[in-house]
Amino acid sequence: DIIVVALYDYEAIHHEDLSFQKGDQMVVLEESGEWWKARSLATRKEGYIPSNYVARVDS
């Protein structure tokens, strides 16, 4: 799995977006363009995230 960590807070604009806080970790489910589908490890919610707001966690 690709794990990313939030670099900034993000408040969902559309209902399919995923809100998150700086430091939150998410599993990337699908990478396509600038918006990635991800699942929050904390809340288990899924939605689209702006890929420029996150960084990959080296395992």
Rank of each mutant, 00 (worst) to 15 (best):
A42G: 09
S51R: 12
Q25C: 14
I2E: 06
M26G: 00
R44M: 14
A55L: 10
E31L: 15
D1W: 14
D17I: 07
Y10K: 03
H15Q: 14
V28G: 01
A42M: 11
E16V: 08
V4P: 00
H15P: 15
E31V: 13
V54D: 00
R39P: 00
R44K: 14
R44T: 10
Q21T: 11
M26H: 02
L41E: 05
W35D: 03
S59H: 11
Y53D: 02
A55S: 10
E31D: 15
E11W: 10
Y53G: 06
D24P: 01
A42R: 15
I49N: 01
H14P: 02
I2S: 09
N52D: 11
I2M: 12
A6I: 02
F20M: 04
Q21R: 15
L29M: 08
P50R: 07
D24F: 02
E46N: 04
L41C: 13
V27N: 04
Y10T: 01
E30L: 10
G23I: 00
S40I: 12
Q25F: 15
A55R: 13
E16R: 14
S19R: 05
K45I: 09
P50Q: 06
V27D: 02
D1G: 14
G23N: 05
S19E: 06
I13F: 09
L41H: 04
R44P: 05
R39G: 02
R39K: 09
Q25S: 08
E30Q: 10
T43C: 05
F20D: 00
T43I: 04
Y48H: 05
V5P: 00
G47M: 02
K37V: 09
G23F: 05
A6Q: 00
E46D: 06
S51C: 12
I13E: 11
A38I: 06
I49H: 01
V28Y: 02
E31K: 13
V54E: 01
A55M: 14
Q21E: 09
H15L: 13
A6L: 01
W36N: 03
H14S: 12
S51G: 08
Y53M: 12
P50E: 02
A42H: 10
M26Y: 02
T43D: 08
H15D: 15
V57A: 09
R56D: 04
L29I: 10
V54A: 03
D9W: 04
P50Y: 08
H14Q: 08
S51W: 10
Y48D: 03
I3N: 04
K45W: 05
R56Y: 14
A55C: 12
W36G: 02
V54S: 00
E34T: 14
L18T: 04
V57R: 07
H15N: 13
I2W: 10
V54F: 13
E46Y: 07
R44S: 14
D24A: 05
G33Q: 05
H14I: 05
W35L: 07
V4W: 14
I49T: 00
L41G: 03
A55W: 08
S40T: 07
S59P: 13
S59Y: 12
Y48E: 02
Y8W: 11
D17A: 12
V5N: 03
L29C: 06
Q21V: 11
L41W: 04
A12S: 09
K37M: 14
K37H: 09
A12C: 04
K37D: 01
D17T: 08
D58F: 10
D17V: 09
M26E: 00
Q25H: 15
G47T: 00
R39A: 07
W35H: 07
S40M: 15
Q25I: 15
A6H: 01
S19M: 04
I3V: 10
R56V: 11
H14V: 05
S32N: 13
L7D: 01
A6W: 01
Y53W: 07
I3T: 06
Q21K: 15
K45Y: 07
Y53F: 11
N52W: 15
E46I: 12
S32T: 12
A12V: 03
G47A: 01
K45N: 09
R39E: 03
H15I: 13
S51V: 08
W35Y: 11
A42L: 12
V54I: 07
E30V: 10
R39V: 09
R39L: 09
D17H: 15
D17Q: 15
S40W: 02
L41F: 07
W35S: 06
V54Q: 01
A6F: 02
V4Q: 01
E16L: 12
K45L: 12
L7W: 03
E46T: 12
Y48Q: 07
L7V: 06
I3G: 02
E31C: 15
D9L: 03
L7I: 09
W36I: 11
E31Q: 15
I2Q: 10
F20C: 03
E31N: 15
W36R: 03
M26N: 00
W36A: 05
G47Q: 00
F20R: 00
E16H: 15
L18I: 08
A38F: 01
H15R: 12
E34A: 13
V27F: 08
D1R: 12
G33D: 06
Y48I: 07
K37E: 03
K22T: 09
G47E: 01
V5H: 05
